[in-house]
Nucleic acid binder design. Structure first.
Lengths: 238, 238
DNA sequence: CCAAAAGTGTTGGTTTTACACCCATGG
DNA sequence: CCATGGGTGTAAAACCAACACTTTTGG
């Protein structure tokens, strides 16, 4: 409205060449206090026998999110997880055989979920994020991007809870944060911050004890908008 | 590494159907202390004669960023602007005629740049972000998404400077922030924050005076990594 | 009784907000 | 001399980081 500056613009027109569109999903979990990512071994070229982030092509009538969910189900047998679009990668040379645009997603699944066997020969397994081997395509770049995003989101949202089972202890929760941020956090400060968010309900009379004193179990209640989340930028590494 | 959980995974295979891939660019500027967005009137169906965000198809050998830059140049005659990928939209019905995946970008251009005439009949003009008419496709959603992102980035990065000419006053800078955040900021607090960033060089003996006392001109020096940027979450609206 | 993890408050430093007056120029 | 925007400091409140000991259980 209201402005006089005008320029001409090219007409939009339909192109000569269409492209392959895939979704690739960086699936994270935390096991044994370490952040892990699900990788599959490719059964076919290109990059046959190398490890890759799970993914697949978007079907003609599928929304991108649907495609990502479907792939996630196919690879892991799991639905109902946290899933978020990450970034799109479109280097014309990223697939050596044909042009493929990849819409990358990241997903968080809780450690208690065991993955069920899929339908074909490729196998998927969990790898320590810090010890991944060479990956197919530009998947190392995608993984790095996902990791950065996860770290950032941890500090201003409550995504971290997605990595835990429905009932968990504060120690486990802190373990998730420490695994992802790769630093130790102060227990008292951490608990104070979590408490301020008012998003945890203590389960009365429910405790867990492996070793040591039994810990109160909590449940995540998404309730209010979780403003300032758990962050500790400058906290000294213990 | 190290984990034993395994699931089968579908082979990746090349799909039957390819798709159209487009880039759409939300181009912002600040003029007269208001945030504006560049819209083009579509010359061809679908949505002929409606307003849309500028965009076009990705060419077969073009990276996504290149495609966005090219479109930006074609629509505005301007290169060398801030450009960032936003999100990808892929609802199968978003284009009524054929399936088109849109990779959305947002760009910031400084108010001093006048757009040069393009090469064909469609015309582009600046619209107040708060007063845009009905847009073609899902472009209203894309615009909203871009606006949210811009607001957020303003608070923890220095993107705001991209909306100003090379030389500017602190009043102008504050005006950009106020236009985007849609709230008044405290002058002294704003200036203190900017000063802490140490990213502005005062231009000695250079002043601007329209009305009132002449204001010192500054230059943006990208220099150091600009940690905590200008933010004022809970600042009282004056 | 030992080992292990759970649980719990206080203090000092830093950051953020609120707030008001004088200055230089043009008309 | 009036109108306009430029320029500047301080005090109170909120927030954040550092830090150590007691409790409960199992073995």
């Amino acid at each position: 409205m209201l402005n006089v500056t005008r320029v001409s613009a090219r007409h939009l027109s339909y192109p000569e060449k269409r492209m392959n569109v895939a979704v690739d999903i960086v699936i994270f979990t935390v096991q044994e206090r370490a952040l892990k990512v699900l990788l599959v071994k490719r059964g076919i070229p290109p990059f046959k026998d190398q490890l890759a982030i799970p993914g697949g092509f978007v079907l003609p009538d599928e929304d991108l999110d649907e495609a990502a969910l479907r792939e996630l189900r196919e690879e892991t047998g799991v639905s109902d997880v946290y899933l978020e679009q990450l970034y799109s990668f479109g280097d014309p040379k990223r697939d050596p055989r044909d042009r493929v645009i990849s819409i990358a997603y990241f997903a968080l699944i809780s450690a208690d979920r065991t993955l069920k066997a899929g339908t074909d020969a490729s196998e998927a397994s969990w790898w320590l994020v810090r010890r991944t081997p060479k990956l197919a395509f530009d998947h190392a770049k995608i993984l790095k991007y996902a990791l950065d995003r996860l770290r950032n989101k941890l500090e201003y949202t409550t995504v971290g809870f997605q990595l835990l089972p429905p009932k968990f202890t504060l120690g486990e929760l802190q373990g998730v944060y420490e695994a992802i941020l790769e630093k130790r956090l102060d227990k008292r400060n951490f608990r104070r911050k979590i408490a301020e968010l008012k998003i945890l309900k203590p389960l009365s009379k429910e405790y867990r004890n492996d070793v040591g004193r039994p810990a109160q179990l909590f449940q995540f209640v998404a309730g209010r908008s979780a403003k300032r989340a758990v962050s500790k930028k400058g906290q000294k590494q213990c």
